[in-house]
Design a protein around this nucleic acid. Sequence first.
DNA 1: ATTAATAGTTATACTTTTGTAACCATTATT
DNA 2: AATAATGGTTACAAAAGTATAACTATTAAT
Lengths: 162, 162
Amino acid sequence: MNDIETVSIDKIIENLIYLHPLLSKSLTRSIRAKTNLNPGSLYILGMLSKNEILSMSEIGCKLSIPKPHVTGQVDKLIAEEMVERLFDPHDRRIINIRMTEKGMEDFKIIKQDISKDMRERIEKLDKQKLDVLFDSTQQVRDILSEIMTDSHSPLTSCNKNQ
Amino acid sequence: MNDIETVSIDKIIENLIYLHPLLSKSLTRSIRAKTNLNPGSLYILGMLSKNEILSMSEIGCKLSIPKPHVTGQVDKLIAEEMVERLFDPHDRRIINIRMTEKGMEDFKIIKQDISKDMRERIEKLDKQKLDVLFDSTQQVRDILSEIMTDSHSPLTSCNKNQ
DNA sequence: ATTAATAGTTATACTTTTGTAACCATTATT
DNA sequence: AATAATGGTTACAAAAGTATAACTATTAAT
């Protein structure tokens, strides 16, 4: 790793640190204002929309949520009938979670609702900046999703008490 | 706003929603583990490193933090001697905040500390992906910083009781 | 001069998030 | 068969963020 790359990494991290509160406030605020769900359970929905079936542990692993917290969040989603438990025939300890049809429909609407404020801001951008934002968020997402979740590494990294 | 642009906006928002928990867990966890500060006060430092001087209200405005909360967070930073109060000669109601030398040095070290875990992951990327991540985080940051903070709009949008 | 508005603080209550320890049921190991 | 490890739950405590009302000091408006 040479000097130029080290400087790049510093800058990347600085960008991410700066970016986070901007996203955080906007998202959590509108999630709370416009849905009955809390941010955490919504992120589980997001993860389930990318991975059709996940066990409780896998959810905790991918989102870095301690296991007891996963139980609570999923309970809320089940109460709303947005996800369902599937019992694993091969290992009766495992409980798999999958979105229901209702969950997918609701999630779609929720995403539109919570994005309303942000949408109004984004709509003011000119075509060129819109394209840039589109491409760059996609790239950040792809790369971070690759390195930040632990799903690509052996299960051992997720076997802690979380 | 045509259909293609609408679809782009949907996708951008989906990307940001997905991105958020990935950043959130990693950052807040290491902030707690490696500093005496809480995430909120660190975000204030981040904002002050981009805007040399900000009043209490402007801080709350830019980070969407209610005013009483700003007081508490800044108090913590002052206790650590990382920021200082400057009294405005033109309007004695206003208290401006600026990072101290110590604050800048500490902040630099803190950033390195909390980025350690993330750095290890980013370092595994090949040169090409590193460059892409560098450019795209920069672009997301520039554009979001433009539209997500209220600093570009008339003060009226920040004069609520926050 | 009086009133209204602004900047910031104090105090309080509340919700959300986070962390941890102990526990049960099931499966794997020896 | 006994023990250890895993997946998940329950329960509780601590930390952080959020919201609101009431207050002081200062400035602006009439």
